[in-house]
Each structure stands twice: as structure tokens, then as C-alpha cells.
């Protein structure tokens, strides 16, 4: 019985100290006074590896998801003679849900895992301790640029995803299945509102970016510095950030779109 209490207590303490370390990491990354001259090149380099290199997977998935949505939506809507509503169907599902969520999942798999592995290996090869030895704050030098790169890239990637998806739907719906192009766009424009749909989608992606990057950085920074530790940390990053994205998506949708 005592053993059980001890186990429970240990697990609880470990969980809380983990949350504490994660918060300390976040505060260290967020509230450091940024050095514009030195920080910008670091940020640009991270924007390249986190944002630009994720572009291909985002564009390709966006295109195909838009095309599939159009194909599926068309078969159902056609039964009611409402093919014209294909435009808003695709645009709303992309802008409100699929854009942020699928981008979040892909971003967690593509960029989040890379961040964790990179920082984990830095820790394993004692690069982080070396930085500290040289009186360079690793939070400022390593964590902060990666965090802001994630926060900037994710919304841009989600916007590109939605835009490409709508173009893909146009490709299938209008050019292939013969939905009228005028009603495709005009009904879409009549139904999609900038504040309600596009801005809310951007807010969603900002929340997801925050969660994913935070989890990825913390998992890497806090990993056990061995090969197994890094592999475990990478797995945890992908699993936890994907679940977090889906969970937060439900909460955000309930807050934003139910009224």
C-alpha cells in the first residue's frame, strides 16, 4: 500500500516538475530581451528550415485534400441539384477546420519532430552545456528563434494550405466536373466572412503553433541524452502535439463557431 502511495506521489511530482520546467523554458524563450542584430539571422535560418522546407508537403496535401473534398462534395450535392454550393462547402471546411488542423498535424510531423531531434542531439552531444560554459544562454540562442519561427511559419503555412486547397477544388469541381465557375466563386464569397472564418482560422493556427512548438522544444530540451531518449522524445512530440491539436481544435471550435 505504501508502495502504491509512493508511486502515485512520484508520478504526480514528476508531472508537476515537468510542467514547471516546460513553463520555465517558455518564459525563458519568450521574455528574453531580443537582440535584433544577432537574433534576426538566427530567426531567418529557422524560418527556412521550419517554414520553407515544410512548404512542399503543405502544398501537395492542400491540393489533394481540396480535390478530394470537391469530388466527395460534388457527388452528394449533385443529388439535390445544389452543385453551386460546392464552393462554400470546400472553402468553409478548409478555412475553419482542415486548414488549421491538417497543417498542425503535418507541421508536428515535419517540423516538430525535427526540432525535438535537433535539440535532443545538441543536448546529447553536450552542445547546450558548452553554450552555457561560454556564457551564452541556450534559451535565447537555440530555443527562442525556433519558437518564433514556428509561430510565424504555421499561420502562413495554413493560409497557403487553404488557398491551394480551394484552387484544387476549383480544378476538380469547375474544370473537371463542370460546376459553374461564377456560382462557385460568388456563392463562396457570399457565405465566407473574413472576420468570422478567415481570422478565426488564423487564431486557431496561432494556438496550434504555440502548442506544437512548445511541446517540440520542451521534449527536445528535456530529453534523456541518449539515442533511446532522443527517439522517445521525438515520438512523444508527434503523439502529444497531434493529440493537443485535436483537443484544442474541439475547444476552439466550440468557442468560435457555436452560437
Amino acid at each position: 500500500m505504501i508502495g502504491f502511495w509512493q508511486k502515485l506521489g512520484k508520478a504526480t511530482l514528476a508531472r508537476f516538475s515537468s510542467i514547471g520546467r516546460a513553463t520555465a523554458l517558455l518564459i525563458g524563450a519568450l521574455f528574453n530581451v531580443p537582440n535584433i542584430k544577432k537574433g534576426t539571422p538566427l530567426l531567418i535560418k529557422q524560418l527556412y528550415s521550419v517554414g520553407f522546407l515544410s512548404l512542399i508537403i503543405i502544398v501537395v496535401s492542400g491540393l489533394f485534400i481540396g480535390m478530394v473534398l470537391a469530388l466527395q462534395g460534388y457527388t452528394v450535392l449533385q443529388g439535390y441539384g445544389a452543385e453551386g454550393s460546392l464552393g462554400p462547402l470546400v472553402a468553409l471546411s478548409l478555412l475553419r477546420e482542415l486548414g488549421p488542423v491538417v497543417t498542425g498535424l503535418l507541421f508536428a510531423g515535419r517540423a516538430g519532430s525535427a526540432l525535438t531531434a535537433e535539440i535532443g542531439l545538441m543536448k546529447a552531444t553536450e552542445q547546450l552545456s558548452s553554450l552555457e560554459m561560454m556564457a551564452v544562454d541556450p534559451l535565447k540562442r537555440i530555443i527562442a528563434p525556433r519558437f518564433w519561427a514556428g509561430m510565424i511559419s504555421m499561420p502562413l503555412l495554413a493560409l497557403i494550405f487553404s488557398a491551394v486547397g480551394i484552387l484544387g477544388a476549383h480544378l476538380v469541381g469547375v474544370d473537371w466536373l463542370g460546376v459553374d465557375t461564377g456560382s462557385f466563386w460568388s456563392i463562396m464569397q457570399a457565405q465566407v466572412s473574413f472576420e468570422k472564418d478567415i481570422l478565426n482560422g488564423i487564431v486557431k493556427t496561432l494556438v496550434f503553433a504555440f502548442v506544437i512548438t512548445w511541446i517540440a522544444l520542451y521534449r527536445g530540451y528535456d530529453c534523456i541524452p541518449t539515442s533511446e531518449g532522443i527517439s522517445e522524445a521525438t515520438t512523444k512530440t508527434v503523439v502529444q502535439s497531434s493529440l493537443a491539436v485535436l483537443g484544442f481544435d474541439f475547444v476552439l471550435t466550440a468557442v468560435m463557431f457555436s452560437s
Binding site: 527556412y48 520553407f52 512548404l55 499561420p155 503555412l157 497557403i160 487553404s162 488557398a163 478567415i198
Partner: peptide, 21 residues
């Protein structure tokens, strides 16, 4: 390339905002 990426993102926002066709 980063400049290209950022402008692509902004372009996507403009396209979505105007939905111009």
C-alpha cells in the same frame, strides 16, 4: 527563400481575403 515563403503566405491571405476570381 524565406522571403519567398513569407510573400507566398501573404499572397495566400490576400487571395483568401478577396477570394477574387
Amino acid at each position: 527563400l524565406v522571403g519567398f515563403f513569407v510573400s507566398l503566405g501573404i499572397l495566400a491571405l490576400i487571395m483568401l481575403a478577396l477570394n477574387v476570381a
